[in-house]
Simulated scan of single mutants.
Amino acid sequence: MSLPRAGRLQTALWAASGIAFLVLFWLLGPILTPFVVGAVFAYLCDPAVNWLASKRLPRPLAVLLVILAMGSAILLLFLILVPIFWREVATFVARLPELLEAVDTRLLPALNERLGTDVQLDIAALREWLSENQEQAKQLLPALLGQLREGGMALVGLATNIVLIPIVMFYLLQEWPRLIPALRSVIPRPMVESTTRIVEQIDSVLSEFLRGQLSVMLVLATYYSVALWIAGLSFALPVGIITGLLSFIPFVGFGGGLILAILAALLQGEGLTLLIGVGIVYGLGQLLESYVLTPYLVGERIGLHPLAVIFALMAFGQLFGFVGMLVALPVSAAILVGLREVRTAWFESPLYLGDAEPASRREQDTESGHDR
């Protein structure tokens, strides 16, 4: 009788600890961002550090080289994308009246004739609204600078977070070989084997998904940049890179990139040919992602369904903000492994099996009696 009570007490303690951890995570959410971002990046970079360390490079130096390489890549990406994206936005604002005029004189009449509708745009009102907001937009930068001067503490907090991320990465990557045995040593001895097995399954699911998805992102960014450039799109590089990066969120990368590419093609003003080329590029890209890259680089055996990924990102983002989006996939991997354990336990439980085994034995006994 004491054993079931001890088991129930242990379960209650674990549940209370989990709830307390979630509450603490929610309360400390605003200050956890650099630590969670650093931990995610450290998890992604650990294989590279281990590879460099296996080449007889001191681990601190290997960690430093990997962090510098990642920081340089992010900075280079930022310096490439921001000026081009800003120029595209300025071009879009300048040509918006012309685009609205083309929609009103060409697109809407054709749609009205085919669909039997009578939709029209009030071009004069739209131009008046654009001219008013254009004057306000000119004052946007001074207003933002004024807000930055007033919100100096927020700017200091952002700079602090940016500095903290590589520091957290360095210490986590440096201490990783000692951190894992230390965590294993605090696990209750009867639970070491099962806990280690579950953690290894979570690591397998998460590492295959994240590192495979990173490979998919890089391949897609390269494909869309090159293919859109061949199709003749002027903003092929930023649109292709953004499409590849957004592909981390299923369906959002394809849809968002296609909208950006269509807008860029309309701004370029080369007619229907470029739009058809953009459609072909994104159609082939979707086929490449769905039937080649995702099955071979990510693998269907992982079990993280695209809809589950979207729901996890939205749910954790709603509950815990930006930090929640960062931990959504690790928690989803843990939940997936937990559900697999529950499923296995259910199929092996007496409640599921019922009297199936005795019934089969009775059938065998009946058949043996008939034979006699």
Results as ranks from 00 to 15, higher is better:
residue 354 G to I: 01
residue 271 G to E: 05
residue 328 A to H: 04
residue 233 L to A: 05
residue 172 L to Q: 12
residue 286 Q to C: 02
residue 237 L to N: 03
residue 119 V to M: 08
residue 324 G to N: 04
residue 326 L to E: 02
residue 124 A to M: 10
residue 129 W to V: 10
residue 206 L to V: 04
residue 60 P to K: 09
residue 112 N to M: 10
residue 89 V to K: 13
residue 321 G to Q: 01
residue 48 A to E: 01
residue 255 G to E: 07
residue 103 V to T: 12
residue 319 L to V: 10
residue 89 V to P: 07
residue 26 W to N: 06
residue 202 I to V: 08
residue 244 G to N: 06
residue 87 R to S: 15
residue 71 G to W: 05
residue 162 I to L: 15
residue 282 Y to L: 08
residue 159 A to K: 13
residue 186 V to D: 07
residue 185 S to H: 14
residue 177 P to E: 13
residue 135 E to Q: 15
residue 293 L to Q: 02
residue 287 L to Q: 12
residue 150 E to Y: 10
residue 168 V to R: 02
residue 20 A to T: 08
residue 208 E to W: 07
residue 127 R to T: 10
residue 185 S to D: 14
residue 357 E to D: 13
residue 182 A to H: 14
residue 129 W to E: 14
residue 345 A to D: 09
residue 90 A to S: 05
residue 337 V to H: 02
residue 134 Q to G: 15
residue 157 G to V: 12
residue 252 V to I: 15
residue 99 L to H: 12
residue 97 P to Y: 06
residue 239 V to K: 01
residue 45 C to D: 09
residue 290 S to V: 10
residue 285 G to E: 05
residue 123 I to N: 07
residue 303 G to P: 04
residue 350 P to K: 05
residue 344 T to R: 10
residue 223 Y to N: 09
residue 279 G to A: 11
residue 43 Y to I: 06
residue 185 S to K: 15
residue 26 W to D: 05
residue 175 E to A: 14
residue 193 E to K: 13
residue 36 V to A: 05
residue 41 F to K: 04
residue 205 V to A: 08
residue 178 R to I: 10
residue 336 L to R: 07
residue 190 P to W: 03
